[in-house]
Amino acid sequence: MYQFNYHRPASLDEAASLMAGADDGTYLSGGMTLIPTLKQRLAAPSDVIDLGGIGALSGITDNGNTISVGAMTRHAEVAASNAIPALADLAGQIGDAHVRNRGTIGGSIANSDPAADYPAAVVALDSTIHTTERSIAGGDFFQGLFETALDEGEIITSVEFTKPTSAAYAKFPNPASRYAVVGVFVARCGDATCVGVTGAGPCAFRWSELEAELAKSFSASAVANAALDHSEFNADIHASAEFRGNLVRVMAERAVASLT
């Protein structure tokens, strides 16, 4: 690691002012991506601003129709919660036990790794990202490879999810890293069905063609009728774009099947 100044502010205001005063600052939440990156010397921030000391950012609140998950809530805590079982199930599939004990929802979402799990739920569930500046609709949040709607210095404070009628997450993990090669989150909200896909594109996206088919008939066999263009999907040594296309279908079928 290169040298940096470590800060552990006690409030969001303090965090923001540290960031404003830093040459090239970075926020640290769980550190599951940032710290390995720093260890590899692939980033050289002047200041690391640890959000771990801001108690208000942690915890899950059940608001009735929605739940609010504080940005610094660890994956393990979400996995152990029960307000939205599919979300808990998703959180329980992230990384490994140690990653889940440190990694946070806010950090994961702000990072927008194309293979992260949470984004599938954020786009599929009716969700809102609350930040120090504003509220952003979940559907507008992810904008590309590691790109989000967040502005420089803006901090996610919580993620609010509307409770679905029912939902399920099916993931095909990368055999080595346990990231999602593909993950599909299917959420039913009354008559509507939303399908969020992670791992396949530069960031999580809604599979609207499948949503339309599922509106006609909510069954696993509907997946076969939904168009899916995999030509621009991600590809690596574990899965070609074509195989990812297949996995998106298979995971969608399995998620839908588990809800029927």
Binding site: D24, T26, L34, L42, A43, A44, S112, L145, F146
Partner: peptide
Amino acid sequence: AKVGPVKA
């Protein structure tokens, strides 16, 4: 260049 956490 910046790709996620990687910045160089």
